[in-house]
Write a protein that binds this DNA or RNA. Structure first.
Length: 490
RNA sequence: GGUCCCAUCGUCUAAUGGUUAGGACGCCAGGUUUUCAUCCUGGAAAUCGGAGUUCGAUUCUCCGUGGGAUCACCA
């Protein structure tokens, strides 16, 4: 290879695609595939295509395309060509718009004598299948190839006539050298009776037309790769680089994550308060990792460090615990403004027990320290954990008893001492409140002073510290609550 | 069942012939200004089994075992 060739090789325009069928929402598994393909394209300053494989009208679900687009956009994955962005040369990225293209390629096979109309009815095919099973041998349609057939008029399915039955060996960017024998080869349908192509045919035609260089997909396609290879040969088109991604397994690690087994719509995670950056980071680390001990990567960083050779071969379980942790990591880096907005979303607008904006701003960092997502915030609110914000606490007098004391009454003189301190304190920040009380607390014993004060303000066994409570509540309310506690004990 | 693939703590993974097999999540314990939480420190926790190659296998080979994928006019 001379220098020119080398340069040419390096200058190859990388093109990847994500090609979902519009049969519903996208879940973690599908999106991870999209993420890897996108990362690779962006890293190589190539193109990323969103191709919609809508060749099965019966399975199509209304609104899926919009939903898929929303899901990718949420994560920050953009596409250069998609269902609404056709390409100047190859046209639409929606397969149902491309029927003529598939016919053109079918014609090539027909002309070569490498395709034939299937003469059998579905029932007859089923009989063949059952007979083969009864005889305990593999069912192969190519054994029923008709010797002669009419010209294809488009009313019957068109089958690929596998030219040579042989063993195929190929290289997968992740799995390395793979091979499969003759059993993996058969005459498969390329155009259905309704005129739509099958996946097996359409994706090969489109990848060629769209100049896709790297095909990234799940391992479910490995076993049909010999069929694809056979088609590439028949069509005389080059095989793109095949990249088999490991499956994402369900939480039990046994089965591939699927809608059937409860895989959630990606956008549910948005509603539940997961940050797109956290989700991207989490997804990137299932089935891939850069090798070091860092685990927190921004999208830009991922573009920089992503590499095909670090993709795992075996499947990885979807661990929601780790996602929660990841989300908290990202939450802790957000601005106060963001967090106020974040929490504000959870409280139903206009509800009576909703803190005002000033209170929310004070509350945000305190609440976020205790939760991983919006679901947990909602739970905390509903369980009354933040009732102290808007109503005077109700509690048993005995709760005012510090654990080292014998009775709650021991707290009385301490609260009486605290009252003037907290009354005249500066409510500018948590620290200014703290400094008004701290010396006394040190002198008397921290728990002795702070526990009853905290209970007086929150009425609860668990809560943020008393200084924070006071800061959120404000001087008037604090004084009233401490007085109320003193009354209880008197 | 045929074909193909995979195999390190419970989970995500690092280390590829030589390490006390490392990190993270989760779990447990201790500590940090009172409780909760945060934070810090520590701990328990893995190379599926058996042969072979080798001075030495987590790493290479083979055989088992286990798991997965696929065998559609679905993608």
């Amino acid at each position: 290879m001379n220098e020119t060739d080398l340069n040419k090789k390096e200058n190859i325009q990388v093109v990847t695609r994500f090609a979902p069928s519009p049969t519903g929402f996208l879940h973690i598994g599908g999106v991870r595939t999209a993420l890897f393909a996108w990362l690779f394209a962006r890293q190589n300053e190539g193109e990323f295509i969103l191709r919609i494989e809508d060749t099965d009208k019966s399975r199509e679900v209304e609104g899926s395309i919009e939903h898929i687009k929303k899901s990718l956009s949420w994560l920050g994955l953009d596409w250069d060509y998609g269902p609404e962005k056709p390409h100047d040369e190859w046209g639409s990225a929606l397969q149902s718009d491309r029927l003529d293209v598939y016919k053109k390629y079918a014609k090539i096979l027909l002309d070569k004598g490498l395709a034939y109309p299937d003469p059998y009815t579905a029932e007859e095919v089923q009989e063949f299948r059952e007979k083969a099973q009864a005889e305990k041998r593999p069912f192969l349609m190519r054994e029923h190839r008709p010797e002669t057939f009419d010209e294809w008029d488009g009313t019957k399915p068109l089958r690929f006539k596998t030219p040579t039955i042989k063993r195929f060996e190929w290289t997968d960017a992740v799995r390395g050298s793979l091979s499969a024998g003759e059993d993996a080869l058969d005459d498969f349908i390329i155009i259905k009776a309704d005129g739509f192509p099958t996946y097996n045919f359409a994706h090969i035609v489109d990848d060629e037309e769209m100049a896709v260089t790297h095909v990234m997909r799940g391992e479910e396609f490995v076993s049909s790769t010999p069929k694809f290879l056979s088609l590439y040969e028949a069509l005389e088109i080059p095989v793109p680089i095949l990249v088999t991604l490991p499956p994402i397994m369900g939480p039990d690690g046994k089965k591939k994550l699927s809608k059937r087994d409860g895989a959630k719509d990606l956008l549910h995670y948005n509603e539940d308060g997961y940050l797109p950056a956290a989700m991207v980071n989490f997804l990137a680390l299932i089935g891939w990792n850069p090798g070091g001990e860092d685990e927190i990567f921004s999208l830009d960083k991922l573009i920089e460090i992503f590499s095909l050779d670090k993709i795992q071969k075996s499947g990885g379980a979807f661990n929601e615990e780790k996602l929660r942790w990841m989300n908290k990591e990202y939450l802790s880096k957000q601005s106060d403004e963001f967090l106020v907005e974040y929490i504000s979303d959870v409280w139903v607008a206009g509800a009576s027990n909703r803190p005002d904006n000033a209170q929310l701003a004070k509350l945000a960092p305190v609440m976020l320290e205790r939760v991983h997502n919006k679901v947990e915030i909602k739970e905390a609110i509903e369980s009354g954990e933040y009732d102290w914000v808007f109503k005077s606490p109700e509690y048993e007098t005995d709760l005012l008893k510090w654990k080292k004391d014998t009775s709650a009454e021991a707290s009385l003189p301490r609260l009486e001492k605290v009252l003037p301190l907290i009354e005249t304190a500066d409510y500018l920040t948590v620290d200014t409140i703290k400094s008004a009380i701290w010396d006394y607390a040190e002198e008397e014993g921290r728990g002795e002073v702070l526990w009853p004060l905290r209970v007086a303000l929150s009425g609860s066994e668990r809560s943020p510290d008393p200084f924070t409570l006071a800061y959120v509540l404000g001087a008037d309310e604090v004084v009233a609550r401490v007085r109320s506690a003193i009354d209880k004990l008197s």
